[in-house]
């Protein structure tokens, strides 16, 4: 029996690491995708969008597999609920990254040049929150004392993202360059969508801080 549990434990360790790798990659592709769209590299953007769609369904499969194994083999009974909760909310991050690129692909917003840098910076900050929250999740599994360190970074980047979002929206609405009100609203909509990635990452970080307290010996 011990050998059986050990091999299952190792397998799950690998699955969890693989899942977290995919969440980080989703954040990076999201950043690259928004950047490619904004600077007009439409082909690259479409490639990124396809990549993230594949990644999203891949991550879903791994998550379901982890859930199945955790219940079937009765592993980590004490923290099973927390681990599954964590994986599900991390999945929301991948989902929203994919959704935002999808919206870009469908709605093809017309982004004026003076807003390009704001959009790219906003996407970069959101991607950083994803990177840090995944580090926090890894720490939850291996080095519980480090969780708060990464959670703090998530809060920091999320706050920065909020500032850039506000700046972008003000620029859009105060600008004489954008004439139609509908385009201004469109800019606001995409700014909010991109910033939403950092909001979801922050809510995962909040959960992680609680789980970390519960897991402390």
């Amino acid at each position: 029996m011990p050998k059986f549990f050990n091999s299952k434990s190792k397998q799950l360790e690998g699955d969890i690491d693989g899942y977290l790798d995919r969440v980080t990659t989703a954040g990076l592709i999201f950043h690259e995708g928004v950047k490619a769209y904004v600077i007009g590299k439409k082909d690259k953007f479409e490639r990124n969008f396809k990549e993230i769609s594949v990644l999203e369904s891949d991550a879903d499969n791994i998550r379901r597999d982890i859930k199945h194994k955790l219940y079937t083999y009765m592993l980590i009974p004490e923290s099973r609920g927390d681990v599954l909760g964590l994986l599900e909310t991390l999945d929301d991050i991948v989902d929203i990254c994919e959704k935002v690129l999808e919206q870009f692909s469908i709605e093809t917003p017309d982004i004026p040049e003076f807003l390009e840098s704001d959009f790219i910076e906003l996407a970069e900050l959101s991607s950083k929150t994803v990177e840090e929250v995944v580090k926090a999740a890894r720490a939850f599994f291996r080095e519980i004392g480090m969780v708060s360190n990464y959670v703090n970074k998530v809060h920091f980047y999320e706050h920065e993202a909020d500032d850039v979002e506000e700046h972008l929206k003000r620029n859009a609405f105060n600008s004489k360059e954008i004439e139609s009100f509908s385009q201004k609203v469109h800019m606001r909509y995409f700014a909010e969508k991109i910033a939403a990635v950092s909001d979801v990452a922050e809510s995962v970080a909040e959960r992680l801080s609680v789980y970390a307290i519960k897991r402390r010996i």
């Binding site: 011990p2 549990f5 050990n6 434990s9 190792k10 799950l12 360790e13 969890i16 592993l75 980590i76 923290s79 681990v83 939850f140 599994f141 291996r142 080095e143 519980i144 004392g145 897991r215 010996i217």
Partner: peptide
């Protein structure tokens, strides 16, 4: 030991 070894939750469980 648990803090220094950075052992994975799954293996700690085992």
């Amino acid at each position: 030991i648990v803090e220094r070894s950075k052992i994975h939750l799954m293996r700690l469980d085992f």
